Computed example of a mutant assay.
Amino acid sequence: MNAEIMDTISESFVTVVPLLKKKLFRTFPIDNMPYQLSRSNLEVLFALYESRTSTVSELSNLMHISRPNMTPLVDKLVQHELVDRRTSNEDRRVIQIRITDAGDRLCKEMHERLMNQIKSKLDSLEHDDLIELQKCMVSLKSIALKINA
């Protein structure tokens, strides 16, 4: 029984997550983005916003981007002083990438813009659909927090 339930849930995630990404996030306008950052730059910045500090290898693994492709993404963020590089206190060979105050401010601004875009997309839904979606999102968030990473 659990195997069938997990199959259904897994299939739903494989279908729903890309659909939500396409409908809500990929349409986010980045044309007038400060610093002319790409979507990939923003994804790296948001990953650092959540983790606060990371290595290039950790970011590469987390985002499924090769280290050689990750380096220029980080370089551009360093160039705009949104993140900085620091030598690890534990091991001088390890370079930590850390979000700066400017990076924090930009993430908060982008978060607000994204929230407004999602609200405008949800505006097309009926009240009953919004209520149902709200309930589902609260449940999904609660359950997702219980999943082991």
Rank of each mutant, 00 (worst) to 15 (best):
N61P: 08
S88N: 09
L130F: 03
G103H: 14
S54Q: 07
R67A: 05
I5L: 15
R39A: 02
K21I: 04
E126C: 05
N61H: 14
G103I: 07
L45A: 00
K21C: 06
V16T: 05
P72F: 08
L140C: 02
R86E: 01
T27R: 01
R113I: 13
N32H: 05
I99R: 09
I131T: 09
Q117V: 14
I143T: 05
T27E: 00
V74N: 01
Q36E: 04
R93V: 07
R113Y: 15
R52Q: 14
S10K: 11
K22E: 03
S40E: 10
R105M: 12
D104P: 05
S12E: 09
H64C: 04
M115S: 14
A3W: 13
M70R: 01
K22M: 04
N69R: 08
T15R: 14
T53L: 12
A102I: 07
I5K: 15
M70K: 01
L73E: 07
H111Q: 15
S10I: 02
L73D: 07
F25L: 07
E11A: 10
L130A: 08
I147T: 02
T53A: 12
S120P: 06
K121C: 02
L42P: 04
S139F: 11
I65F: 09
N61Y: 13
K121H: 03
T55G: 07
L125T: 04
N41I: 12
D123Q: 12
E11V: 08
I99L: 09
N2A: 09
V94W: 00
N2R: 11
I131A: 10
S66I: 01
K22I: 07
K135L: 06
L106W: 14
L42N: 07
I30H: 01
S124G: 12
D104G: 11
Y49N: 11
S40V: 02
E112A: 13
K76I: 04
I9K: 06
S40R: 03
R98Q: 04
K119F: 11
P18C: 02
S124Y: 12
D128K: 14
A3N: 08
L73A: 07
D31R: 00
E132R: 13
L114V: 15
S124R: 14
T87F: 09
I118C: 09
Q134V: 07
P29D: 01
M70L: 04
T8A: 11
S38P: 02
V78E: 11
T71S: 04
S88I: 00
R39C: 01
L145N: 06
Q96A: 09
N148M: 01
K119S: 10
S10C: 06
P72T: 00
L59F: 08
